[in-house]
Amino acid sequence: MIEFQHVAYNYGGGELLTDISLRLPPGSFHFLTGPSGAGKSTFLKLCYGELHPTAGRVTVDGADVAKLTRDEVAKVRQRIGMVHQDCRFLDHLPLAENIALPLTATGREVPQADMAELMGWVGLKPLADHLPPSLSGGERQRAALARAVIMSPDVILADEPTGNLDWEMSLRLLTLLTELNKMGKTVLIATHDMNLIRSAKSQVSARVLRIRDRRVQLAGSEL
């Protein structure tokens, strides 16, 4: 479980987030919304230890992320799958190797049957040997999702995952994320796409958090 306790974050110039206290319970589905520059990406980075709060603390399963060693932070990240808008692949490796990277980087075997099943789940089986630059935006996002879940993490964090996708592809990705939530994964999606949020509400019981005036609030019924 990820928990924020009176968290604030300053970007040098001023306070971006202030006094945030919330919990992401296991198996929950949350959207995080707000205007561009509100601090959605910063919030996610605080979750997986890429940034540390300037006040308060962020804990993952009770451990204060700011006090973990570098190796312990790496272990936390192995339990949190990240999907970025820009995907971030190793462009010189084929897609299948990119997806399997969390396993190979931690010295684990890559079960071929599981790999094939995962590639099939995201609809990328025929593209296993392709290099990432040759893929479309939607294919890259699905590949990023496959890479995020290959370690069977407890939590999936997605930062504007549909930002570069058309509506049909966005819904397809959303369906994959709701399927993961139904398997018991905690899902947090940062997005400014209100249509996506409305669509999700028909598929899954999701809470919507909104960043307003540097604080995170539970969004009302207007969503």
Partner: peptide
């Protein structure tokens, strides 16, 4: 950056 994101340790 990608390797750190997916949880690779520094030593790797």
């Amino acid at each position: 950056a990608v390797l750190r994101l997916i949880g690779a340790r520094d030593v790797y």
